[in-house]
Design a protein around this nucleic acid. Sequence first.
DNA 1: TTAGGGTTAG
Length: 564
Amino acid sequence: MKLPLNQCRWFSSSSSPSTSLPWISPLHYIKPVTPKLNPPPETSTVQRRPKFITHEAALTMIKAERDPQRALQIFNMVSEQRGFNHNHATYSVILHKLAQSKKFKAVDALLRQMMSFETCKFHEGVFLNLMTHFAKSSHHERTLEMFFLIQPIVREKPSLKAVSTCLNLLLESGRLDLARKLLVESKRGFDLKPNSCIFNILVKHHMRNGDVDSAFEVVKEMRKCEGSYPNLITYSTLMGGLCEGGRLKDALQLFEEMVSKDQILPDVLTYNVLINGFCRAGKVDRARRIMDFMRKNGCQPNVFNYSTLMNGFRKEGRLDEAKEIFAEMRNSGLESDVVGYTTFINCLCRTSKVDEAMSVLREMKEKGCRADAVTISVILGALCRENRFEEALEMVDRLPYEGVRLNKACYRIVLNFLCKEEEMKKALYLLGLMLGRGFRPHFATSNQLLISLCNADRVEDAITALNGLIEMGFLPEDQSWLQLVESDKHSIRFIPFCKLYVHKVYFLGPALLAIPIVEACSLLVNISEHNSFHLLHELNQAAGYLHAKESICVTLNTLGDLIC
DNA sequence: TTAGGGTTAG
C-alpha cells in the first residue's frame, strides 16, 4: 500500500503544521546523528537520510554509468557507507568498465586494493576478463600478468580454463615467448596438466602458421598425455589446416580416420570445413556432394553450410546454381541469417541485379534480419559500379537513422568511386557526412580528393576539405601538399596550414615566397636553426624565379636574430 | 569469458 506523501517516512512536506521543528525519523532514536557532524539545513525543515546503497543497487548504477571516471566515483562513494564492503560482483563490474575504457592505472590501483585490503572471496572470472582487455590493447605482458595474479588474489590455483584463455590470447597475438612461459609455469608452479582444449589451441596455432607437421606432432603428444585425447575439434582444426594448404585428399583421409579409428562422428562444423575447403579450391561440385553426403548420414545442413556452398558457386560465376542453393535452404525450412542474405545479395550484385538485391534487402528488414555493414558495403559497391551515386549517397545518409551501423568501409567504398569518377560535388557532400559522423577517409583517397579539387579549380573547396581532414588527424602527403601550394601560388590561402609543416622546411619555400614577409618571418620562428639554413637555401633557389630577393634579405636578418 | 565453420572492401 502506498503511503500518503505527508506520512511517508522519508518525506517531509513543507506544508507540515510543525514547521519550527524538523521532522525526525523514528530511526534517529535508535541511531542518533551527531548534530555537529550532520547539521540540518537551516533554511529547510527537511532532513533527508541518505539511502543505503546495496550491492545490487551499486551494480546497477556502475553498469549504467557511461563515464568510467564517474563509475569509479560511484564505486568509491558506496564503499564509504558504514558497514559496506565491496564484493566480487562490484569489483568485477568496475574493473570491466575501467578496462573497457583503457583506464589501466585505475585497474592497477583496484587490483592492489583487492590484494592488500579485501577479505571477500574473488573468482578467477574477473582475471579472464582483464586478460581479454589487455590483449585487445596489445598489452600482452599484462595478459600473462593477470594469469599470475589469480593465485594471490583468488587464493586458489588457476584453472585449466584460465590457462586456455590466456594461451589462446597470447598465441593469437603472436607472443610465443609469453605463451611458452605460461605453459612452463602452469606445469612447474601449479602442476597443471594440459587438457584437450589446450592441445587444440596449439594445433590451431601451428595450422595457422601452415606448419602441418608440428600440428600433427602436438596430436601425438596429446595421445601420450593422460587425460587428453584428440576430439572432434582437434580433427576439424586439422582438416581446416589441410584444406587451407590445398591438401584436400589428406583432409578427406583424416575425416575417414576420425570416424573409423577414433569413432568420432562429424557435426555441421566439421562438414563445413570440408565444404569450404572444396569451394575454395574451385571444386564446388564436390562440395555439393559433401553436403548430400552429410544429409544422407543424418546431419542436416545449417545456414553456414548453405552460405558456404552458395558462395562457392558465386565465386565460380555459377550464379543460377548459387540462387538454387539459397532457395534450397529456404525449402528446407531454414531462415537465413545476415551472412546468408549478404552472400545471396552479393550473388545478385555480381550479376548486375542490384534492384533485385535491394528488394532482398527490404525482405531482410521485413523479416527482422538487420543488415550489417558488410551487406551494405556489397550493395553500395554494386550501385557505384553502375554509377548510381545518388542512390548510394541516399542509403549512406539514411541507414544510420534506421539502426544500421555503417563502418568506415561503407563510406570509403562510395568516396573512392566518387573520386575516381571525379564527382567532386558528391564527394564533398559525402566527406562532410562522414567527417561529421567521425569516419576518416582512406589516406590515399584524402590526398586524391584534395588534388582533384585543385585540378578542378575548386581551391576553396579543397581548403574546406583540408580543414575537415586535418581536424581528424590527417596530414597530406608531401607531394599533395606541394601540389596544393602550387595550385594557389599567388594567393596565401594555404598559409594557415604551413605551421603543420615546420618539420618539413622544404615545403614551406613556395608558400613563404607567396606571402608578405612579415607573415613569413612569424612562421619561421617555429623553425629550428638547422632547418632555417635549408629554408634559406630553398628561398635562394626560388628567388630568381619569384623576384623575392628583398624578402630574402629581410628573412636573413630575421633568421640572424633568431639564431643569435 | 577455454579449442573448430560461412559474407564485403582494401
